[in-house]
Design a binder for these strands. Structure first.
Lengths: 391, 391
DNA sequence: CTCAGTTACGAAGGAGTCCATCATTATTAA
DNA sequence: TTAATAATGATGGACTCCTTCGTAACTGAG
């Protein structure tokens, strides 16, 4: 009732399942000899050979030269052809548009960043997105036809269909049908997701949360946000509004930053986007007023963080976003606040992925999308490289 | 990375998958003719016949007489042998121990309730559990050997191994290794889970939340509790402490009930366990003081409820527990509180399952356990009736 | 340079599962 | 009694996987 049904079926379905097992065995690892693939898939050698031959014929797998120097006949080695297709990830922020293109294994092959302004018109911002992806493609000698999936990350609530329900950070962004507007620009699926969620995903795939299946990602910066990983998957909720604990007045997340901006030690004329960083740096240096301001700031953060942790009981809380660079200052007070109320204290870690984490998460989300298409329990895959067996 | 791998394998594995498809097609429905099974499993008629014959030989499926009156040769009909095994569910509360035994389809065949007192010694309480299950078995002419799974629901935090981490409602209950103590008493798996979570499960399986995959269950009564259904499955969190939003001081869940108990209209000498019901009834009748008390009570509930809803964005919030009988009084004020802060307002419904909901949830959890064993992606099932094909 | 040892490759034969097809059987309706 | 209908049961073919065994390619010692 709860799990996807393990669908049996035809003999060709069995072959398909075994082909998928082989792909799974080969993805993200070094080239493997046949015997290794056989042991990982549980198939016999001859069957593995047949499956791999078929996958080579379809373009999913390629052979690499054998490694000399071992005793005995050298084994032929195979690897997943991660260059069969490419994935694009885009991070549309108020101040920057970042893009990256990666192969099917998620390895970045090109990356760009372009500054925009919060008041950049919507049409211009979308044009920047197109140019950014085109630039990545050009840098790596690819064309749009090589793209299998494009994932867009952006601030604000994004619904199931890729429409921006609400965004406070980018003017005129609310109500925009991003997936619709950008869907026509690329000859592949275009998915849109909230940026904090993508960052959370990146942390579980290649960041400090790698290997954890229950993770709360806290984006702390000029805006607050969360990304929730539940049972290893992104949780968006029924109406894509999960993680919006900041809406609760008791959390005071929206006004929290005023404790940093309003700190008396900030020099006159400091631009507002630098004030918080100034205070955090001063706190690190031991300035008492700054330390007090940070304490008050963390007080405000902690309620919402504790509410999320108490609700979900994650293994791990990851601090990301602009302020995570100051995690050394923020973590200790946050930890003590959480310890005071949490039934089971999760581990606390600071993100190390930096500013590209949303783009990386977009790539990872695209890779997940590929997985979903490949490994969908019932329906066979319908992909640029077909896996269906017809000869 | 996120989903269970769709494991292929042997030809016998394919047969096994198809047998499971057939079981899945037959479970919980009326007897089906072969052609209906074939269309549901996607197999051809002859293959379906072979699979069903094998399942009959193993005891999973039985034949029922054909229905006369139709034109053409009457079709043989088959059904899942839900009486091949039985599931027991137990609800260990402070004041009552309830037990039920159900067949593999979850249909209750016997049910008992026995009153205990909060200060009943642990050993006596456990003896009552044993007697309760034995009573259910005796009533339905079964023995412990017929049991495939026993699920115990109880108040308090229960860890992954079935140990009670903490319980405020039952003295000396904290730290008890319930699964260990009861595991030896039954010749089958014994699972232990928190009672609110089981009630939540029952609501999604046979209650007002049937069909919803994102549900927050709020137990409101002398104690507060929650059960979270995420993506159709019970969420327990990394350390089995999910849903404990009541620990957050800002929610004031622990003191909320004082607004009802402390209401001035409660007559002198009313036993504390009846005070809340008195006030709720008075509020329904329109007593201004009672209405005001209920308003204050709901004020306290609403913060934690809103925090959970904002974090998870469920489709549905179900009110259960003792006070859910007064849902007509509680729902409107709770709805208006939530509407004030929730980004997307979930539906609000009152439970209709009544006092047996924990026992029912325990049965459903046992049925899920059976499903997990049957349909585990990789490993073949190891069950009282073996499904492994050896002839 | 040759030969034994090691490891992997490739082909052949056998078993299990599924499917399409068709004659047969059981029942209803005329 | 006969025609129509719908399911049954049996046969042969196709596909996938497995086991087994002879062959090929390379290393290292003499």
């Amino acid at each position: 009732m709860s799990n996807p049904p393990p669908s049996g079926g035809d003999l060709s379905r069995l072959r398909q399942l075994n082909a998928l097992s082989a792909i799974r065995a080969l993805r993200g690892t070094e080239p493997l000899p046949l015997s290794a693939i056989a042991s990982r898939t549980g198939l016999s050698r001859p069957s593995t050979k047949e499956v791999v031959d078929e996958l080579m014929g379809l373009g999913w797998v390629e052979e690499v030269p054998p490694t000399p120097g071992t005793v005995g006949r050298p084994a032929r080695r195979y690897r997943f052809r991660s260059g069969s297709g490419y994935l694009a990830g885009v991070d549309i922020g108020a101040h920057n548009v970042r893009a990256a293109v990666a192969d099917l294994d998620g390895n970045i092959v090109a990356e760009t960043r372009q500054a925009v302004r919060p008041d950049t018109p919507v049409a211009d911002r979308l044009a920047v997105v197109e140019r950014a992806v085109a630039g990545c493609l050009a840098m790596s000698g690819l064309t749009a036809g090589n793209l299998w999936t494009v994932v867009i990350g952006t601030t604000g609530l994004v619904d199931r269909d890729g429409r921006v329900i609400f965004s406070a950070a980018i003017p005129n962004w609310s109500g925009l049908d991003l997936a619709g507007l950008l869907g026509g620009k690329f000859p592949c699926d275009v998915l849109v997701e909230n940026d904090s969620r993508l960052a959370a995903l990146a942390e579980t795939r290649r960041g400090v949360a790698r290997g954890s299946r229950e993770v709360v990602f806290l984006h702390i910066g000029r805006r607050m946000g969360t990304g929730l990983i539940i049972d290893g998957r992104l949780h968006r909720g029924f109406g894509a509004a999960a993680g919006e604990i900041g809406m609760l007045p008791e959390t005071r997340w929206k006004s929290a930053i005023t404790h940093l901006h309003g700190c008396a030690i900030v020099p006159e004329g400091t631009p507002p986007e630098d004030a918080a960083g100034y205070v955090l740096a001063a706190a690190r240096a031991g300035d008492p007023a700054a330390v007090a301001a940070v304490e008050r700031y963390v007080d405000e953060l902690a309620v919402g963080a504790a509410a999320t942790v108490l609700t979900l009981d994650p293994e791990l809380v990851v601090l990301g976003g602009g302020f995570s660079r100051s995690a050394d200052v923020l973590l200790p007070p946050l930890r003590s606040r959480l310890e005071a109320v949490c039934l089971r204290m999760p581990e606390l870690r600071a993100s190390t992925l930096g500013d590209e984490c949303v783009v990386l998460g977009a790539i990872d989300y695209a890779a997940d999308h590929l997985d979903r298409q490949l490994f969908a329990a019932d329906t066979g895959p319908a992909l640029p490289l077909p896996l269906s067996v017809t000869r």
